[in-house]
Design a protein around this nucleic acid. Structure first.
Lengths: 142, 142
DNA sequence: GAATATAACTCTAATAAGTAAAGCGAAAAA
DNA sequence: TTTTTCGCTTTACTTATTAGAGTTATATTC
């Protein structure tokens, strides 16, 4: 049984975000789809953190329902299903990147310093581009 | 009973982040401390989402233990305890901002468009500053 | 100074979430 | 034809989270 806007705890955007993916698994699935080019149920099941079939199944349903991933049949193997991030899902990348950078700054992880530097640089560049875009379209146009 | 690095599911930074604050409440507490200048247990208890005393108490313990918030006695009222974000906690701001912007883009919330524009602008400016900093200190210095 | 209120909790019982293991139907490989 | 793979679902169980009542200490009001 899933939540919709009507039984959310509040309409605060932070709360809304947490109701979408504020659990221990959803963003790991997004991570695998986004950074590790994982595409199938079976591959997701093999993630290091050890997700169970039941949990994976329910998280996939939720992510589908929320439009964060898509589900497609494979042409070459009719058993196989391919999962992909939607545009909406792919746009979670900045969220993941900020989380990763925060952890890299404050805790021990297995992420090499080089990778941290690359993420930082990518972030800076994308924001620099955003500054340019904002200059064209004034920020308070809505 | 709390987790430490030794019984984490993996050392992946994304997973590490989720073990730190991948639940439905921790970042709401950070939100209140960061954006709404909330300082006490009682005020936190009044958040719109309706956190219970037990949950709030356990989340505060965890955030303290992780060094995300600090706990201080008040001089004027000896019952009162003041909670504040540490530097480490304050540095979660970009994470929250990206989450809020994602939601503002993709879902209905109560956030006024003006506020979204302000957040975007603040993000762009801070990143522009980061670009300048990176130019001084090469990104792969570690 | 007695009663009431407030702050910051702790405890407990109930509910929700997550898990491992087995099983299933369809498709592919041996 | 038998076995394996794929993407699940189901079940029985364990663990985590939660709401709400209760507690202690301090402060305020009458």
């Amino acid at each position: 049984m899933e939540k919709d806007a009507s039984n959310m705890r509040s309409q605060c955007p932070m709360n809304c975000a947490l109701e979408f993916f504020g659990d221990k698994w959803s963003l790991l699935i997004v991570r695998d789809l986004l950074f590790f080019h994982v595409r199938s149920f079976g591959q997701l099941l093999k993630m290091d953190e050890g997700i169970s079939t039941g949990t994976l199944s329910s998280r996939i349903s939720m992510l589908l329902q929320r439009g964060i991933i898509s589900r497609n049949d494979c042409l070459d193997d009719k058993r196989a299903i391919e999962y992909r991030l939607s545009d909406k899902g792919r746009e979670l990348e900045p969220v993941l990147v900020e989380m990763i950078l925060w952890v890299a700054e404050h805790e021990m992880t297995d992420l090499p310093p080089k990778a941290v530097a690359n993420l930082k640089q990518a972030r800076s560049l994308s924001r620099a581009a955003a500054v340019a875009t904002d200059a064209q379209q004034p920020a308070d146009r809505n």
